[in-house]
Amino acid sequence: MNIFRLVADLMHLGSILILLLKMFTSRSCAGISFKTQALYLIVFVTRYLDLFTHFVSVYNTFMKIFFISSAGYILYMMRVPLKDTYNKHLDAFRWEFLLGGAGVLALVFTHKYTVIETLWTYSIFLEMMAILPQLLQLQRTGEAETITTHYLFALGAYRALYIVNWIYRYETEHHVDAISTMAGIVQTALYCDFFYVYFTRVLKGKRFKLP
């Protein structure tokens, strides 16, 4: 564990807490993509199957359980108590392509053809693209509530810090995982446009609005 990874994980944890705060305070899930949230649940469940086979640390186990359960709870919130505030028409990304595409990539690139290993690889490729429905929704609306942009910023920062963590691990432990690194760079690149608007508008106290 290094400082970059620790801060990244805490940003990830923080992003989920911000999302829950948004839902609780505004009693609404407007602006949030159900598809992206559902993809994250699939990502966590397929990646953390090793909860049952491989113990890393109490920290690691706690975080895995938190990510799976919070993702499930968010879906429940969006489907049951906040159902009326969800706009299906704005959440129009064809996510079948993401689910299928990640499957193909996993079968091609997996390190080993075992169930756990292939599902792990699937989760990496699915996470790489899971934010796309959310970004499409943002593009369609052209603007977003400030708290939603803080959520997205924390999520993007978590990904960016993981890249720094891999560079650090490469320097210190000579560890590198080509799949994680490649997918992580693509995933972080998807946030570029968002980061630009976030830094030039939201951090200067203005509303998030696409040009």
């Binding site: 890393v56 640390s57 690691n60 990510f67 390190h111 792990w120 891999w166 560890h175 995982d177 994680s180």
Partner: peptide
């Protein structure tokens, strides 16, 4: 390389 090196990550 079996890819398990980084599986202590989340």
């Amino acid at each position: 390389q079996d890819g398990h090196q980084l599986k202590d990550e989340l």
